[in-house]
Simulated scan of single mutants.
Amino acid sequence: MRPSASSRRSAAKAAPAQPPEVSLYDEVTRKIITQLEAGRFPWVQPWGRAKGAALALPRNGVTGRRYSGINILLLWGAVFEHGYPSQAWVTFRQALAAGGAVRRGEHGATVVFADRFTPKAEQERAARDGDEPGKVAFLKRFKVFNLAQCEGLGGEGLEGLDGEAAPLPERQVVPAAEALITATGADFRIGGQKAFYVPSLDYVQVPPQPAFTDQINYYRTAFHELSHWTGHPSRLGRDQSGPYGGKAYGREELVAEMGAAFVCATLGITPTVRHADYLGAWLETLREDNRAIFRAASQASKAADLLLSFQSDPEPPPPPAGAVARVAEPLAAPLAA
């Protein structure tokens, strides 16, 4: 005997409400907010507790392909949290294919993959109206495991990924960083007491390296400003029109902060954070928009990729000894460091 409509309604009311599924955007954003609230910047020295971890972008231990965007922050965070000595990761199946396995009881780190699909209803509408169907963006999650969580790995492609970064020279001059700055061809000026990028005149200015309390931060500052430089309309074309202190300005600063960290990690440079004064604005932005950190991390990856793409250019001859770039007064409101 089928229950009556009234009894079905009563049963439905009595059934406990199912908790809403937390979106992957919310999950990742909350994780980043928690780290910021704890005073830890996930893009700066996330390997601080990881003994022996090389300074590098996380990458796949089989293909060698670097992770990008939000996945850099997620995997750096996992290295920091668990103290892994490696920046290389594999899937469960990759570990098996390499002749090894993930150790029993190990828990993987989450990475995400953005994709788009066309719902069936939209396909039918497009066929009926004779136009292109729209697509809906979504995220997929995957689990990856650090090489330190695996055993018996002996497959080809798993060697040489986790060597220690070369120690910095005694005077903290990093030749690879110097060569990259020059190779960009940017109008890069040295002098003054402030670091900034002027979008209207398309030039970067930073103080000379001896002016920095920690000289290594000269390079972090240089790549922060060069990350701004990548946003020029002739390059990646980001919105750099926001007034100082505004939300758009803060978003651009967040992109430059992470972009510099990604470049420094690739070059083996350990930077320290300089933009703690933006923390409040960043937290406000992330709390208002659960996709803000995804967009910022994606744009930061593109900025870092553009800068690092100049590494393949032939290295130009060094400038004359003692040469210092000419400094001009800014004629427009700069994006200050």
Results as ranks from 00 to 15, higher is better:
residue 11 A to I: 08
residue 209 Q to C: 13
residue 62 V to S: 09
residue 141 R to K: 14
residue 8 R to H: 05
residue 274 R to C: 08
residue 81 E to H: 12
residue 16 P to D: 02
residue 113 F to S: 11
residue 137 A to I: 15
residue 291 R to V: 09
residue 90 V to Y: 03
residue 40 R to Y: 13
residue 330 P to K: 02
residue 45 Q to Y: 15
residue 127 A to M: 08
residue 203 Y to S: 06
residue 69 G to T: 10
residue 9 R to G: 06
residue 67 Y to F: 13
residue 201 L to D: 12
residue 210 P to M: 07
residue 48 G to D: 15
residue 154 G to S: 12
residue 311 Q to H: 13
residue 308 L to N: 00
residue 90 V to I: 08
residue 176 A to P: 00
residue 10 S to D: 10
residue 84 Y to E: 01
residue 44 V to Q: 02
residue 177 A to D: 05
residue 335 L to W: 06
residue 44 V to M: 09
residue 140 K to S: 12
residue 39 G to E: 06
residue 71 N to T: 07
residue 229 W to I: 14
residue 98 A to I: 04
residue 57 L to N: 02
residue 128 R to W: 14
residue 211 A to W: 11
residue 27 E to D: 11
residue 108 G to Y: 01
residue 333 A to M: 14
residue 222 A to P: 00
residue 22 V to Y: 11
residue 296 A to K: 02
residue 136 V to P: 01
residue 102 V to S: 00
residue 213 T to A: 15
residue 245 G to R: 04
residue 267 L to N: 00
residue 48 G to K: 15
residue 12 A to D: 06
residue 104 R to G: 09
residue 8 R to Y: 08
residue 219 Y to I: 05
residue 250 G to R: 02
residue 168 L to K: 05
residue 299 Q to E: 09
residue 96 L to N: 06
residue 333 A to S: 13
residue 29 T to R: 03
residue 192 G to F: 07
residue 2 R to F: 15
residue 328 A to T: 13
residue 67 Y to C: 03
residue 181 I to Y: 01
residue 175 P to S: 11
residue 161 L to H: 05
residue 281 A to V: 12
residue 16 P to M: 07
residue 5 A to M: 11
residue 258 M to C: 10
residue 289 D to N: 09
residue 102 V to D: 00
residue 38 A to R: 05
residue 206 V to T: 04
residue 232 H to L: 12
residue 334 P to G: 03
residue 116 R to M: 13
residue 139 L to M: 07
residue 222 A to G: 00
residue 305 D to A: 11
residue 224 H to V: 06
residue 19 P to G: 11
residue 81 E to L: 09
residue 93 R to K: 11
residue 259 G to F: 09
residue 197 Y to S: 03
residue 191 G to D: 01
residue 297 A to T: 09
residue 290 N to W: 09
residue 130 G to C: 03
residue 133 P to I: 12
residue 149 Q to T: 06
residue 251 R to L: 10
residue 155 G to Q: 00
residue 135 K to M: 12
residue 114 A to P: 09
residue 210 P to Q: 02
residue 253 E to R: 01
residue 244 Y to S: 09
residue 155 G to V: 02
residue 170 E to D: 08
residue 70 I to C: 02
residue 86 S to R: 05
residue 246 G to R: 09
residue 191 G to P: 01
residue 175 P to F: 07
residue 117 F to E: 03
residue 199 P to I: 12
residue 217 N to C: 13
residue 21 E to R: 15
residue 334 P to D: 02
